[in-house]
């Protein structure tokens, strides 16, 4: 199943990746190959098999509403590349 260049560009944008024209073409070819490989699954007959997103068969896993110790602010910010006034600093974000 061949992907179009537009589809690859769209996915790249969602992933916040900037690709050159050459990279885009290479990704298009590689992603198309991956999709073709995965498409083999389509040969399996799944009539009467309900869709699932879980393989554990677990249901209703809940915890009581009890407060546990979280992280300190120092721990929370330990890996932040940029911070100010105890907050994570990032590029400007429109409308939150």
């Amino acid at each position: 199943m061949a992907l179009s260049s537009q589809e690859v560009a769209h996915v790249a944008r969602l992933a916040r990746l900037r690709l050159s024209a050459e990279e885009l073409e290479r990704m298009r070819s590689q992603l198309s190959n991956i999709l073709d490989y995965i498409a083999m699954l389509q040969e399996v007959n799944v009539d009467g098999v309900p869709p699932t997103a879980q393989v554990t068969d677990l249901v209703t896993v809940m915890r009581p509403d009890e407060v546990t110790t979280g992280l300190t602010r120092e721990q929370a910010l330990a890996n932040a590349p940029d911070q100010r006034e105890g907050m994570f600093r990032v590029k400007p974000v429109f409308d939150a």
Binding site: R63, D65, E66, V67, T68, G70, L71, T72, R73, A76, L77, E85, G86, M87, F88
Partner: peptide
Amino acid sequence: TASKMFDGCAAAYAGAEPNTFVSV
């Protein structure tokens, strides 16, 4: 609730110093 939706981090953050009610 006393704790957050998906872990035991305290939910009563109102008025607290930034990033003091956080968890993994």
